[in-house]
């Protein structure tokens, strides 16, 4: 009933009942070939990024000009043994069509309607570039880009343009020379944009948001660098004297004492609506001023509703509106009592 545990390498033959026993402390050495394990894990780790890089799609880049014409640039894999390649174009109003083979040779082409016949013999990759006027239409002030893309693509929008409608999710967005560049998936895409002089680039924007084909080694190095920089900043910050903060506190206190309190405002303006009074209370408790966006967040009101409320308070002489970083800063008026 108490079976004897015998190391396999000391035993000449199996027991009569055919049971095999091994010493558990030797299981790693006996059953697992460590060099083989290590080698296979390294191979698996090494092969993974290669597989992903092999599966990258052909390049398709589009640039929209301010007049709505679009520059198309595409790298296409072709069979070098086939003499011609018929390329379906994105429309039939084509200008400046040029095709280059992999060694930089200008290839002979024939554009008929919305397709082009390219003599590709001997080339395995071709670069096609052309301008097209079929992809963007304009209605009123709104420009609409539409495309049924055969692969993922990048789209560089014109300067001073702002997207106001979109039918699918972008993969990525970068800002290149103050222009929005979107990376979009294959398939039907429709984007509405218009030209504007304000709010083109959202607040607190990075110059670029890297991403899709991620080099994670550089990311890790970047991460380490960021940690070091943050560490240095923290150490330096600790060494600084706290005086400036005290100055700020006194300024804030001074500002608070100058601000008229909510109850006085309600006495002076008894006709204020209840919802407007809540806004006044909030601004008063916030040191006499608040951003309109903060008010919207606080009272969960749509932009137009809050905008109307703020305008109403301004008309009543309760607040004044100042522009701060393209946002509305709403301030309680200080000289209300004198006016009354």
């Amino acid at each position: 009933m108490n079976p004897e545990i015998v190391p396999i390498h000391r035993k000449e033959s199996l027991r009569e009942d055919g049971m095999l026993f091994v010493r558990t402390e030797c299981i790693l050495d006996t059953m697992v070939k460590i060099p083989l394990l290590v080698a296979s894990m390294i191979i698996v780790a090494a092969v993974m990024p290669i597989q992903s890089s092999f599966s990258s799609p052909r390049a398709l880049d589009l640039i929209i000009y301010p007049d709505g014409s679009t520059h198309v640039s595409a790298d296409i894999d072709v069979d070098p043994l086939v003499t011609d390649y018929e390329l379906k174009l994105f429309g039939n109003t084509i200008d400046n069509f040029v095709v280059v083979g992999e060694s930089g040779f200008l290839l002979t082409t024939d554009v008929i309607g919305d397709s082009a016949l390219i003599e590709t013999f001997g080339s395995s990759v071709i670069t096609v570039e052309y301008d097209i006027h079929d992809l963007v239409s304009k209605q009123g002030r709104v420009w609409t880009f539409s495309l049924d893309a055969p692969s993922d693509f990048t789209l560089l929008l014109p300067k001073n343009s702002a997207i106001v409608g979109m039918t699918n999710l972008p993969i990525n967005m970068e800002i290149i020379n103050d222009q929005n560049q979107l990376t979009l998936s294959a398939g039907d895409t429709e984007i509405d944009y218009l030209f504007s002089t304000t709010a083109l680039i959202p607040d607190s924007i990075d110059s670029t948001i890297p991403i899709p084909n991620f080099d994670y080694i550089s990311y890790v190095i970047g991460g380490i660098a960021v940690v070091i920089v943050i560490g240095v900043i923290v150490i330096r910050a600790k060494q600084k004297i706290v005086k400036p903060i005290q100055v700020q506190d006194t300024t804030q206190t001074k500002q608070k004492t100058e601000t008229i309190d909510a109850e006085t405002i309600f006495k002076l303006k008894p006709d204020l609506r209840e919802d407007d009074k809540e806004i006044v209370k909030f601004i008063s408790n916030n040191g006499g001023q608040a951003l309109e966006s903060d008010l919207r967040k606080k009272f969960l009101q749509p932009r137009t509703t809050m905008w109307r409320a703020v305008k109403r308070l301004e008309r009543n002489g309760v607040i004044e509106i100042e522009k701060k970083d393209l946002q509305n800063l709403v301030k309680l008026r200080k000289n209300m009592e004198e006016e009354e």
Partner: peptide, 16 residues
């Protein structure tokens, strides 16, 4: 990215 695009569009629409 989605938030940026949506916020930008929101601002433009309200301006319009």
């Amino acid at each position: 990215i989605l938030l940026r695009i949506a916020t930008q569009a929101d601002k433009q629409i309200i301006n319009q």
